[in-house]
């Protein structure tokens, strides 16, 4: 098993932390993991992305040019990474952030209307966890219980009360992700 994933969007959308939670979940399953952020002069409103690799074997390059999965949360990220998805790979996008749909026909494309769902849950901070839920529905690379264990490990204790809310958001994402035909 090896999943090479790029998660990209605006700074402040929770791109890096979503990648971190995925990486911690992989750690809980005793997989090899790497988490490589773009650490340029990003700030809220700028672009941010992170490459996460989960693998049963040792990971060679943390820098990649093609991915099994691209999670894109805004238009510039879609424009940048659509061409870098492997043939037969997966593209997941947030319906709110994209105004021009992807065009490739040799990949599977999914939409998660995470922004709408986050507003429905009355918690805009749940946005990235809803996306993560969608990703895990399509690519069940880690078990939900291990995501929760990963959250416990990565969050300071004072934030542990937020874990049930995050779990709820992940489940919501699993429910609402839908495949789009291009």
């Amino acid at each position: 098993m090896k999943e090479e994933i790029i998660i990209a969007g605006f700074g402040g959308q929770g791109v890096l932390s979503m990648g971190k939670i995925l990486a911690y979940s992989g750690l809980m399953e005793e997989k090899e993991v790497s988490w490589m952020p773009s650490y340029g002069p990003e700030q809220r409103g700028g672009t941010a992305n992170v490459t996460v690799i989960l693998s049963d074997d040792q990971i060679s390059s943390p820098i990649l040019n093609e991915f099994d999965v691209a999670v894109v949360l805004n238009q510039p990220s879609l424009d940048k990474f659509e061409s870098k998805i492997k043939k037969g790979g997966v593209l997941i996008f947030d319906g709110y952030g994209i105004n021009q749909l992807p065009t490739r026909k040799d990949i599977r494309v999914f939409r998660v209307n995470a922004m709408d769902a986050a507003i429905e849950l009355n918690n805009s901070k749940a946005f990235n966890m809803i996306i993560l839920g969608g990703l895990l529905k399509i690519k069940p690379m880690v078990k939900l219980e291990n995501v929760v264990a990963g959250l416990k490990k990565s969050l300071p204790e004072r934030h542990h009360k937020l874990i049930p809310m995050n779990e709820q958001a992940i489940k919501k994402g699993m429910e609402i992700i839908e495949e789009i035909s291009i």
Partner: peptide, 10 residues
């Protein structure tokens, strides 16, 4: 360098 410094691994 910035790659090994910034990346997270086990």
């Amino acid at each position: 360098d910035g790659i090994i410094g910034q990346m997270m691994e086990k």
